[in-house]
Simulated scan of single mutants.
Amino acid sequence: MDVPGFIGQLRGSEAGEGAWLAFEFLVLTAARTGEVLGARWDEINVTERL
């Protein structure tokens, strides 16, 4: 699978930004759908990438 190509297509799609960001997060982290949909910003550490 060409993940970078897929992510590029996803970003260029007509889906809303929130939708493609959530899906990109899902693909890159292998998180469960429920975890992604229920995630809160205080659970994500952007600085340390956790």
Rank of each mutant, 00 (worst) to 15 (best):
A30T: 14
E17A: 15
F23Y: 06
A15C: 13
A15G: 06
R11M: 07
G12H: 10
G18W: 10
A30G: 14
L10G: 11
L10P: 06
S13T: 05
F23H: 03
E24T: 07
A22S: 10
P4Y: 00
F6S: 00
A15S: 13
E24R: 02
A19Y: 05
L28D: 12
L26E: 08
F25H: 15
E24M: 03
G8L: 05
A19L: 13
A19P: 00
L28E: 15
V3P: 13
L21Q: 11
P4W: 00
G12F: 13
I7S: 04
P4E: 05
I7E: 01
L28A: 09
G5K: 01
R32H: 03
G5L: 00
V3R: 14
T29Q: 03
T29H: 04
G5S: 01
G5M: 00
V27K: 01
F23L: 10
E14Y: 07
L26D: 01
L10E: 05
A22L: 10
G18H: 08
V3Y: 07
G18Y: 09
A31E: 06
A31Q: 11
G18L: 09
W20L: 08
G5E: 01
F23R: 04
G16Y: 03
W20K: 10
A19R: 09
E24L: 01
W20I: 07
R32Q: 00
L10T: 06
G18T: 08
R32P: 01
A22V: 06
R11E: 11
F23E: 11
E24G: 00
F23I: 04
E14M: 03
W20F: 12
A15T: 09
F25S: 10
A22E: 06
Q9C: 08
G16L: 09
G18C: 06
G5Q: 00
I7Y: 03
P4F: 00
A31M: 14
Q9M: 13
F23G: 00
E14K: 10
L10I: 06
A31P: 07
V3E: 11
R11Y: 11
R11P: 06
G12W: 05
